[in-house]
């Protein structure tokens, strides 16, 4: 009796651990709430679990650390369709929110220019000069400024400390930043 109970307990514990560890619970497309399960094309589409389970895991958004996936070569997305399109990577960090109450925001140009073109943000979203932009979490939460991507596609706005990441006692400027956080030439 006791041994039976013990073995049942073991099975349950194993099931619990397996369940807790199985990060790959991306829902199949048919039940993700967006796709129509009766749509004839759905069964031909790639399932997210198949594609995403091999990428560095995250705890939010798509549950993929996309920048890490790119940096480590887990994915190698094309950076152009047309050979004439220029690509530029900018390596410096910009510190923002220098006088606020939250920790200082460290904006890494590299992580952003790996994916984006300079012209995606400059100058219609942000002036290409450190300190020249007035940021507001209200606007960001409305889907403006950083919120154009963060909260929609890039990691969501519930991850405060990923941007507000530099303690107040830390440096106020990153040495790599050129004077005034100068602009790389806009390409379009």
């Amino acid at each position: 009796m006791d041994s039976l109970r013990r073995s049942i307990g073991r099975v349950l514990a194993l099931a619990t651990i397996t369940m807790a560890c199985s990060a790959a619970n991306w829902l199949p497309l048919e039940s993700d709430g967006v796709h129509d399960p009766t749509a004839p094309g759905v069964k031909h589409l790639q399932q997210p679990a198949e594609a995403l389970k091999v990428l560095p895991p995250d705890t939010t958004g798509n549950h993929v650390r996309w920048v890490e996936a790119l940096e480590k070569g887990a994915i190698n997305p094309r950076d152009r369709l047309f050979s004439k399109a220029p690509t530029q990577i900018r390596e410096d960090d910009i510190l923002l929110n220098l006088n606020g109450g939250m920790p200082i925001v460290r904006f890494p140009h590299r992580a952003h220019t790996l994916w984006l073109d300079c012209g995606n943000c400059h100058d219609h979203l942000f002036k290409a000069k450190a300190g020249a932009n007035k940021f507001s979490m209200f606007a960001i939460l409305q889907g403006e400024q950083c919120g154009v991507c963060h909260g929609a596609v890039s990691f969501p706005l519930t991850e405060c400390s990923r941007c507000h990441s530099v303690a107040r006692s830390g440096p106020s400027r990153v040495p790599a930043a050129s004077p005034g956080g100068g602009a790389a030439p806009a390409t379009r």
Binding site: I75, P77, R78, D79, R80, L81, A85, W115, D117, T187
Partner: peptide, 11 residues
């Protein structure tokens, strides 16, 4: 996974 943002959003 296959294209960087800029391919669609810039080019």
């Amino acid at each position: 996974m296959r294209f960087r943002c800029k391919v669609c959003h810039a080019d």
